[in-house]
């Protein structure tokens, strides 16, 4: 079997006396879309933040391409090829689309110490990538605050894809989107996956998950209820699992690859 791009083994995360994650294992293969489902407060965001270098896990091991990795900060995770689009903190509203797009990786020109941002190139690429995602901007200097919630998410997704992430983590990217933009994001996930990038797709919406997912993992109160492959589980079964797993016993047979 191929080596997962990222593998998380028995991850625990405690915030003081709150146990947000109590032993979650999870992996992403190249070119797959692994959906992470769960109710509010299940620990999905906390889990992907440990993957993205925001939180250090209290316990557990993390492997990138089969080798143990420790991320001290989000920059480390980014340079390992893990890009994340956060649920609520994707972009900075007061700043322009172009500046947001390039944040942290600004293209520079000139001689040190007089290096400046290459605005011409930055603006052109930002406009182009945004229009690929179906969003037409008035100008690259347009502030992100003037965009709708969905358009803001799209800026962050376009950015992550452009910078050639190996793993793209999307925390509820479709929760604020309308029909057309959701279709766009799902189509983008599909394309990203075809390029061999592993996608971690967090959602509450089982239909969105079923549309693109290759594997499904359900989190509940900081624990995994199991991982199922595409075609081995129905939308109804997933829905029930998310709702608290009352019918877990009945579903156990369908969860072939239970961790």
């Amino acid at each position: 079997m191929a080596v997962p791009i990222v593998e998380m083994i028995d991850i625990q995360k405690h915030f003081g006396h709150i146990i947000a994650l109590s032993g979650v294992s999870f992996s992403v293969m190249p070119g797959e879309c692994h959906c992470l489902l769960g109710d509010n407060g299940a620990g999905k965001s906390t889990f992907i933040k440990t993957m993205a270098g925001v939180h250090a896990p209290t316990h557990g091991e993390m492997k990138v391409n089969g080798e143990t990795a420790h991320f001290a900060n989000p920059r480390d995770a980014m340079s390992a090829g893990i890009a994340t689009v956060y649920q609520d903190l994707a972009v900075i509203p007061l700043m322009s689309v172009s500046r947001n797009f390039w944040m942290g990786r600004e293209p520079e020109r000139g001689v040190w110490p007089f290096r400046t941002i290459d605005f011409k190139m930055a603006d052109r690429v930002a406009m182009q990538e945004m229009s690929h995602m179906g969003i037409n901007l008035r100008e690259p200097e347009q502030a992100v605050g003037t965009l709708s919630g969905g358009e803001r998410q799209t800026v962050a997704i376009a950015r992550a894809v452009y910078f050639g992430a190996k793993v793209l983590i999307l925390d509820e990217p479709t929760s604020a989107l309308g029909v057309r933009q959701t279709a766009n994001v799902l189509a983008t996930i599909d394309q990203v996956r075809k390029k061999g990038i592993g996608v971690v797709f967090i959602t509450h919406n089982v239909r969105h998950a079923m549309a693109v997912g290759d594997r499904f993992t359900v989190l509940n109160r900081g624990k995994t209820l199991g991982t199922a492959d595409r075609g081995k589980i129905s939308a109804d079964e997933l829905q029930n699992l998310m709702a608290g797993g009352q019918e877990l016993a009945q579903l156990e047979s369908s969860l072939g690859g239970t961790v």
């Binding site: 229009s131 690929h132 179906g134 894809v161 766009n184 983008t188 394309q191």
Partner: peptide, 8 residues
């Protein structure tokens, strides 16, 4: 850098 063709 990579480019993804437009879905729409």
């Amino acid at each position: 850098p990579s480019t993804v063709a437009a879905p729409l």
